[in-house]
Simulated scan of single mutants.
Amino acid sequence: MSRVFFSEALDTAATWWRVHRQDGVTLGFTTHDRDLWFDGVLHRAAPGMLPSAIRRTAGFEDDPGDVEGALSHGSVREEDLASGRFDGARIESGIVDWETLERARLYEGSMTRVVREAAGFKAELASRKADLAYDPIPLTSPSCRASFCGPECALNPASFELRAKALNYDADAGVLTLDLSDCAPYRLGQLRWLDGPATGLTHAIIEAQGDRVTLAERLDFQLDVPLRVRLREGCDRTLATCNTRFANAANFRGEPFLPGNDLLAQYPMPR
Rank of each mutant, 00 (worst) to 15 (best):
D97M: 15
L132W: 00
R90D: 10
A119P: 00
L125R: 05
A82D: 06
T112W: 01
K129T: 09
F121V: 08
S72V: 13
S83N: 10
Y107E: 12
R85Y: 09
T100K: 06
L132G: 01
R90G: 02
S75C: 06
S127F: 06
G94D: 13
S127A: 07
F121C: 12
L81P: 00
A89E: 03
A133Y: 13
L71M: 13
E68V: 12
S93W: 14
R77E: 14
E117Q: 15
A123S: 08
S72W: 07
A130H: 01
G65A: 14
E68L: 10
V76F: 07
I137Q: 11
L71E: 04
S83V: 04
E78M: 09
V96W: 00
E79A: 14
V114A: 07
H73N: 09
L71K: 13
S72A: 14
E79R: 10
E61C: 03
A126K: 11
E78K: 10
A89K: 06
G74F: 10
E79N: 08
G59V: 07
R77S: 10
Y107R: 08
F121L: 13
A58C: 11
F121W: 15
G94P: 10
K122S: 09
P138S: 09
G94W: 03
T100G: 08
G84H: 02
E124C: 02
A123T: 03
F60I: 08
A133L: 15
D97L: 15
E108R: 13
G74A: 13
F121G: 11
I137V: 15
D80T: 02
E68P: 00
L106R: 04
S110L: 04
M111P: 00
D87C: 00
L101Q: 02
D63P: 15
V96A: 10
R128H: 04
R90H: 14
I91N: 03
R116W: 06
D63L: 03
D131T: 08
G94H: 08
G74K: 08
F121S: 11
D87E: 00
T112M: 07
V76D: 00
A58H: 07
E108Y: 01
A118W: 01
R85H: 08
R77Y: 02
V76S: 00
